[in-house]
């Protein structure tokens, strides 16, 4: 059997200490390359930095719809409508399959929590204002805003019930969460989905 001898020095920056053939544990670091790498990392991370932070926390397996014409998500109470459950600011308020089959448009658990939140927000805003001053139009708008993130696979009927309930509870100004994408990408995704559906039906 042939014995294969490995290359003597794989990395030219690893130096041998003296002539004893013992490998040094120290390696030379090229500072120029390292600083370049650091700079690139800083630029990349700064580019992906979002000053708004994470306004919506989505669960694993959640799929948001994609859109081209989008705006920046605002700071507002957040409803997440997943395939399994509906959460409000991280708290489970209803089970989606139960909401889907319900004949009533109103979701009692969600409405209760939204009404409480609305009252709390109004109280906080009034406390922050000087006595005798009225809420400005912008502040009133802020009180009506709500972020709704719905899984793209859900039927409209389920989302409609959530929107109806939030509107009824005093949050009629909906911000529908989407993932920003390009038109080509969206069309490509949809074409792939349709192809998958066709394959499923033919099977």
């Amino acid at each position: 059997m042939t014995i294969v001898v490995s290359a003597r020095r794989i990395n030219p920056t690893i130096r041998r200490r003296g002539g004893a053939g013992k490998k040094s544990v120290y390696a030379t670091l090229y500072l120029t390359s390292m600083v370049d790498m650091f700079a690139i990392m800083v630029i990349f991370l700064l580019n992906s930095f979002s000053p708004e932070g994470e306004l919506i926390v989505l669960t694993k397996g959640f799929e948001l719809p994609k859109a081209v014409n989008t705006g920046t998500l605002s700071m507002a109470p957040s409803i997440v409508v997943g395939l399994e459950e509906i959460t409000f600011d991280g708290e489970v308020v209803a089970k989606t399959p139960e909401v889907a089959v319900a004949t009533d448009w109103n979701i009692p658990g969600l409405q209760q929590i939204l009404t409480d939140r609305k009252a709390k927000m109004e109280e906080e805003m009034k406390l922050a204002l000087a006595e005798g001053t009225e809420l400005t139009e912008e502040q009133q708008k802020q009180l009506r805003m709500i972020n709704v993130s719905a899984d793209k696979r859900l039927p409209f009927e389920t989302v409609k019930k959530v929107i109806y309930t939030s509107g009824f509870a005093g949050f009629p100004d909906f911000r529908l969460a989407v993932l920003r994408s390009s038109e080509e990408r969206i069309l490509k995704d949809r074409a792939q989905q349709e192809l998958l559906m066709q394959n499923k039906t033919t099977r």
Partner: peptide, 16 residues
């Protein structure tokens, strides 16, 4: 930046 980065950028469709 690594600690604070938000990898998924969620946007909104303007409200009705």
């Amino acid at each position: 930046l690594l600690i604070t980065v938000v990898w998924v950028q969620i946007s909104q469709m303007a409200a009705f």
